[in-house]
C-alpha cells in the first residue's frame, strides 16, 4: 500500500471540510494510506512570496524536511500548497548554491534539505500512483451523462518547468480523470485562465470579473457543473456566484464540485457522507442527474 504525508495547508482545514473529507475517503478507497505529520506550517504561497521570497522558499523547504524525515512523499490537495512545495523541491534539487543557502537557514532549526522525496498534487497521485485503469475498475456509480467543465486553476500547471504535471497549454489529465468516472469533460473558452482568487482584497472587481467569465463560459458550453482542484478556485466560483448575482443580477446556479467529490460519488460514497452542505451553490442538480 502506497503511503503519503497529507499536506492540508491553511484554507482547506479552515473552510473546506468537503475537500478534505472527499480526498481522504477516495484515497482510502483506492488503497492509499495518508499520514498526518506534526509541525507542517503554511506552505508560504504567493501572498507570502510577495513579502519575502527567500523566507517562503526556506519555509517550504522546512516542510519538505519533515516529510523527508518520515520517509514519505507529500500529497497536496491545494494548488497553492502544491505549487509552493513542488517549486521549492524542484529548485533546491537542481540548484546546489540555493540548496546550500537554504540549508544554512534550516540549520537554525536543526533541519537539512536532502532532496529525497516527491511533492505531488492529489491529481498526480490519482494518475501516477493509482492509474486510470484502477479508478475505472473501482467506479460503482458511473456519472453517465454528466457534463463536467474541468477547471485546473493556475498552480497545478504553471510554472510547468518546475511543476511538470502536464502540458501547460493543452493539459489532458483532468479530462481523462473525468472520463474515467463515465462523465463527459467539456471544452470552454478561457478554460486555463485564472479564477481571480489571489486578487481578492486587492482588486475585488477584477477578481469577480475573472470568476464571472468562467461561469458564463461554462454555462454557455452546457456544463452541469464545474470541477475544481483548489480551494481558492472553489471559493471564487462558488461564493463568487452570490457576488455575481448581487452585482450583475446574473444567476448561474452552477454547482462547483472538487474532483475528489465527483470521484467519491462515482466510487459509491453516499452524498450525505460528503459535507456537501458546505457548498453555497447546492449540488442537488448534479445528484439528481446521476441518481
Amino acid at each position: 500500500m502506497k503511503r503519503f504525508a497529507i499536506f492540508l495547508g491553511c484554507t482547506i482545514p479552515a473552510r473546506q471540510p468537503n475537500y478534505e473529507l472527499s480526498a481522504r475517503k477516495t484515497l482510502e478507497k483506492l488503497d492509499v494510506e495518508l499520514v498526518d505529520l506534526d509541525n507542517f506550517t503554511c506552505c508560504c504561497p504567493a501572498p507570502i512570496q510577495s513579502i519575502n521570497l527567500e523566507s517562503s522558499q526556506a519555509i517550504a523547504a522546512y516542510n519538505i524536511c519533515l516529510a523527508e524525515e518520515a520517509g514519505l512523499d507529500i500529497v497536496a490537495l491545494c494548488n497553492g500548497c502544491f505549487e509552493s512545495l513542488a517549486m521549492a523541491n524542484a529548485a533546491l534539487k537542481k540548484d546546489k548554491k540555493l540548496k546550500a543557502e537554504i540549508n544554512k537557514v534550516l540549520a537554525k532549526v536543526g533541519k537539512e534539505f536532502q532532496g529525497t522525496i516527491e511533492v505531488k498534487h492529489f491529481l498526480q497521485v490519482l494518475i501516477e500512483d493509482i492509474g486510470l485503469k484502477k479508478i475505472q475498475e473501482k467506479v460503482t456509480k458511473p456519472l453517465s451523462s454528466l457534463k463536467v467543465a474541468p477547471f485546473y486553476g493556475c498552480h497545478s500547471l504553471r510554472p510547468s518547468k518546475l511543476l511538470q504535471l502536464d502540458d501547460p497549454e493543452r493539459p489532458q489529465i483532468f479530462e481523462n480523470l473525468i472520463e474515467s468516472l463515465g462523465a463527459e469533460p467539456l471544452e470552454y473558452r478561457n478554460k486555463l485562465k485564472c479564477c481571480g482568487g489571489l486578487l481578492k482584497g486587492i482588486s475585488d472587481d477584477t477578481a469577480l470579473e475573472l470568476a464571472r467569465e468562467k461561469l458564463a463560459n461554462t454555462n454557455k458550453a452546457g456544463a452541469d457543473c464545474i470541477s475544481t482542484l483548489c480551494p481558492f478556485c472553489f471559493v471564487a466560483l462558488d461564493i463568487g456566484q452570490i457576488q455575481v448575482k448581487g452585482k450583475f443580477q446574473e444567476i448561474y446556479d452552477m454547482p462547483i464540485l472538487h474532483y475528489s467529490e465527483l470521484l467519491a460519488l462515482a466510487l459509491g460514497v453516499a452524498p450525505e457522507e460528503l459535507a456537501l452542505r458546505s457548498h453555497k451553490i447546492k449540488a442537488d442538480k448534479v445528484l439528481e442527474k446521476i441518481a
Partner: peptide, 23 residues
Amino acid sequence: FGLPPLKPVGVEDLNKILEATGF
C-alpha cells in the same frame, strides 16, 4: 465530519526561519 484532529503547527521553527531570512 469524521476528520482526524489537526496536528500541531511548527510556529516556533517557522519564526526562527523568518528571523534568519530577514522577514
